[in-house]
Simulated scan of single mutants.
Amino acid sequence: MNDTQYNLNFEKLCSELKLGELLSSPKPISGGLLHRMYAIETTQANYAVKALNPQIMIRPTAVQNYIDSERIATVAAEHIHAQPAKRLMGASMHNIDNQFYFIFDWIEGQRLEQDEVTINNSSLMGTILADIHKTDFTQLELDRSQETNSKKIDWMFYLNKGKNENSEWIEILDSNMDKLYEWSTKAKSSSSMLASDKVISHRDLEPKNVMWRQGKPIVIDWESAGYINPMHDLVETAVYWSVDSSENINKEKFLAFIGGYKKRVGSLTANWEVVLDHGFAGKLDWLEYSLKRSLWIECTDIEEQLVGTTQVIWTLEALEQYENMISDMKNWLNS
């Protein structure tokens, strides 16, 4: 078990950043699977506070990556409705006793569940993704040297370690072992083929990362923002906005998203087979990270370990479902 733990001190956070005095205990809220989010009410205002995962923040490039993600959000907010972190005391990210935080103004709005997404929602989000891709971020002078292609993953290492610890996912991981290496080969090959064409984007524009207020979307949670192949980002995001809660894809919503994107950029030219193969990459990376959490290789506490275990099973199922979608999506994109 790693000694890196969350070290939350909201009173000191509010005091040092002059946010006002807390009126009640911070309330945990849904905020993704990597970090922890809290709603706080002070004498000045209501805020959403993101406490960044300490295990992630010890990575050599993590601090700069998160600073850059908020710089991207700030520029994007000049072109779309987006919510960057608040700049306080001259900074967007704050370190209080080795615990990093982002502070956001509280948004009165709602997220759409997957089954609530309409064709119009999908089309609108397609245009918003295009607007992000068309945004000029050159002023930020972001470092591209940290970009990496899909790496080789030793899945047998995790299977054997899981067997030693009697992990609950060993059967489903074992049964997918051949597929994992097949998907990894496709991800690595497609990553190399798409590497030369990159834009800066949100990179995680799922329904959970969009707040709707009076029918208008506000894009939140920019922590994953960075360079990405635009057609891969397009297809992956179109899937986010066209699958239901059972991960079944809806053709009309998928094509509505693509159509919304094309309204801004015109016709599309791509090798869709390569683009679709690259869709395995992010899921495989997430699977490996979930395995590390489940096995206490990169994990802060039991709560995170349980999330890792759940996500291993969910991601393996998602990979199978994605493979089953590819044929239909390829036909839709080529038609």
Rank of each mutant, 00 (worst) to 15 (best):
I218N: 01
V199C: 03
S192L: 13
D204L: 03
L194A: 00
S196K: 15
I200H: 01
N209V: 10
I218F: 13
D221C: 00
S201R: 02
R203Y: 05
N209P: 08
R203H: 12
N229Q: 06
G215V: 05
L205A: 03
P217Y: 01
L194R: 00
D197N: 15
D221M: 04
D221G: 08
L194F: 02
L205I: 12
A225R: 03
E206R: 13
I228H: 07
P230I: 08
R213W: 12
Y227C: 12
S192I: 15
Y227L: 11
G215D: 05
R213F: 11
V210G: 01
A195P: 02
N209M: 13
K216W: 10
I220E: 10
W212N: 08
I200L: 14
I200M: 11
V219D: 02
R203K: 13
Q214K: 14
S196M: 15
M211G: 02
V199G: 00
M193C: 00
S201N: 10
P207Q: 14
P207T: 07
R213G: 09
K198V: 10
Y227I: 10
I228C: 14
M211E: 05
A225G: 04
M193N: 09
V219N: 02
Q214E: 15
M193Q: 11
P207F: 06
A195D: 09
R213T: 15
P217S: 01
A225I: 09
V219A: 08
S192Q: 14
G215H: 01
I218S: 03
I220H: 07
M193L: 14
D197L: 06
W222S: 00
A195K: 11
N229A: 04
V219I: 14
G226H: 11
V210K: 03
P207E: 07
Y227R: 06
A195C: 07
S192M: 12
E223I: 05
W222H: 00
K216L: 13
W222I: 01
V199P: 02
A195R: 07
P217K: 06
L194I: 01
E223Q: 09
P217F: 01
L205G: 06
S192R: 08
R203D: 10
D204T: 06
K216H: 13
V210R: 02
W212M: 10
I218Q: 06
I228F: 12
M211L: 15
S196W: 06
S201G: 10
L194Q: 02
D221E: 05
K216M: 14
D221H: 01
D197I: 10
P207R: 02
S224F: 14
S192W: 11
D221P: 10
I218Y: 10
K216P: 08
V210S: 05
E223F: 08
A225P: 02
S201V: 04
V219K: 04
L194V: 04
K208Q: 14
M193W: 05
S192N: 12
W212A: 04
S224E: 05
N229K: 09
D197A: 06
M193G: 00
Q214T: 09
R213D: 11
R213N: 11
A225K: 05
D197F: 06
S224Y: 12
K208F: 11
R203A: 07
H202G: 04
V199F: 03
M193Y: 06
G215P: 00
D197M: 08
W212K: 09
L205K: 12
M193D: 10
Y227V: 06
M211Y: 08
